[in-house]
Structure formats: structure tokens, C-alpha cells
Design a protein around this nucleic acid. Structure first.
Lengths: 147, 147
DNA sequence: CCCTAACTATTAGGCTACCTAAATATGAAC
DNA sequence: GTTCATATTTAGGTAGCCTAATAGTTAGGG
């Protein structure tokens, strides 16, 4: 399964892989003195419009259910989400964001977006355009990865 | 510090941040039944051409020195790198890859690049080009993040 | 010289965010 | 009304970071 791909594609793959690695570090650093960790912000953002069941949260985040439970319990202790049995299926648990959760998301999002925007400011117009054009592609790649 | 950026830049920042989050999961999944973890592969790839000191490795990976030491010790135990005092400066430690380390890097790189290449195959020519154009930009952003 | 300050790496201890396997409880189907 | 499937939690483990403290080495100034 190795000669199957063109050399240029393999090169791009390697470069993409390295970019992913760098991205992991950038994402982590985007969590300064923050009230919310990056993972918590992702979870909260997801349920900010409507509550979801634990399993759905895990699926959307691309993590296993116990990992989602763990995060949710932490957020519940912090008063940022509530957990209530799903009225339609008492096996399931509905997770909803609280007012203070919403406030935390907004402030964290603002601060982080400002941080990122500051980094993006150092780019040339062409670089910004190149980045903007590629982001949907990255999102597409991720979808196809999920299976 | 919030009205400082143009709305489009803020939007891009948000989109970029989400792409980073997706990237974190993709990167993690890129580590199947592998002999090497993603972090180990990055480290080994870095020293595959010439040995480096622990501090340089940490710097290049964007992690702190103790974290690099930890990884290096694991790799040494696995027989993939050697550690020797730097002849020019006995405070420092030269880390070099072993033959079996080189073999591990090659096989892991091949398998992972093939995995990524498979994902990239589903993209159109334009999408591939967009991605290729953006990767250097991402790398640049990361550098400016390092300070 | 030697003493102090600067540097390099390691050790110790801690944390986040994942994971798998097993337990619990509810729902569904025959 | 068992039995099988589904949803979540609990328990225990791991990777990969971090900071603070320690030990050894080098370099510079008096």
C-alpha cells in the first residue's frame, strides 16, 4: 500500500502531519490564565445552543463516552452545566449549559479569538487568504477521518 | 483590546481555532497500533539526521526541557536513541538515534504518511492546492507563537 | 585562583485529558 | 418476563505536558 500514492501527495501528507503536531501545541497554549481549558471550552461551545446527551457530546467531540462524562462532571461541579435525566429515555442524561456557563464561553471565546487574531495580524494578505481557503479543507479532512 | 481587530479577522480566528481543535483529534488518531506514539515520532524524526542536545530538542519541539528528558529516557529504554555527554560541554547531553530508531522512524513515517495520503486522496485538486499553500502559513503562525 | 552567577539536565510531584473494562440501570423485543 | 441492547458511570491506567527543586559544569570578575 505504499506505491499507491504519488510522491507529491506523500510529501504533502508529511507536511500536513507536522502542521497537525504544531497545531496541538498551539491549541494547548491558547489556554493562558483561562477559566476554561481548551477541551472544556470546546464542550461548552457545543452545547451552548441546545442541550445534548452525553453520548452525542462524546461523538461530536470525537472522544469516548467515559471521557465526556469526566469532563461534564467537572463542568457541573464548576456550575457551568447541569445534568438531568432525559425525559424520553431515562437511561440517557441531558447536559445543558447554565447562565454562568454561557458567560464563561463568551468571555473565553473573546479572549482566545483576540489572541489568535493577534497572531494572524502578522500575516500578509496572501497568507491570510491562503489560510482562509484551507480551513474548510481541514474540516473536510476531519469529517472523512471520523468515518 | 477587543475592537482592535477587524470582524473578518476575528471570524477567521474563530475558524482557525476550531480547525486546531479538530487537528488535535486527528493527530491523536494518527497513532494506531503503532510502535511509536506521535510525540515520539516527532522527536525521533528531528534527530534522524544529526544528534542534538536535550535543550535543542525541547526548543524545536516547543516543549520544556524536563518533558523532553522524559521522552528521551523512554526512547533510550526502548533502544531507539542513545545519550552521551557532549564532548564540548559536559553539562549537555547529546541524543542520537540508533539503527533500530531509524528503522522505526521509517516504518512509522511510511504508515502514517500513507494514512494521511489516503485522506488527502479524497480531496479535489483545488482543495489539495489550498491545503499545500496554507501549511507554510500555519508553520509561520506557530513560530510567532513560540515568541 | 576562586567565588558567584549562569546554564544544562535530571528528579520529584502534579495535572489534564484521554483510554479500556466492568458495573449499573433502563429500554426493547420476542 | 427473560434476554439482549443501549446509556452512563465508576475504577484504574497512560501519555505527555507542566513547575519547582536539585546537581553538576562552565564562564567571568575581582
Amino acid at each position: 500500500m505504499n506505491g499507491t500514492f504519488s510522491p507529491t501527495l506523500i510529501d504533502l501528507a508529511q507536511e500536513f502531519r507536522e502542521a497537525l503536531r504544531l497545531g496541538v501545541y498551539m491549541f494547548r497554549r491558547l489556554d493562558p490564565e483561562g477559566e476554561l481549558t481548551a477541551a472544556q471550552l470546546s464542550l461548552l461551545s457545543m452545547i451552548s445552543h441546545s442541550g445534548l446527551r452525553v453520548g452525542d457530546i462524546a461523538k461530536n467531540l470525537g472522544i469516548k463516552v467515559p471521557s465526556a462524562t469526566e469532563q461534564i462532571i467537572k463542568l457541573e461541579r464548576a456550575g457551568l452545566v447541569t445534568r438531568q435525566p432525559d425525559p424520553d429515555d431515562s437511561r440517557a442524561v441531558q447536559v445543558a449549559i447554565t447562565e454562568s456557563g454561557t458567560a464563561a464561553v463568551e468571555s473565553a471565546n473573546q479572549r482566545r479569538n483576540a489572541m489568535v487574531a493577534e497572531l494572524l495580524q502578522n500575516l500578509s494578505t496572501e497568507e491570510v487568504e491562503a489560510l482562509a481557503a484551507a480551513l474548510p479543507v481541514i474540516s473536510k479532512i476531519n469529517s472523512s477521518f471520523q468515518n
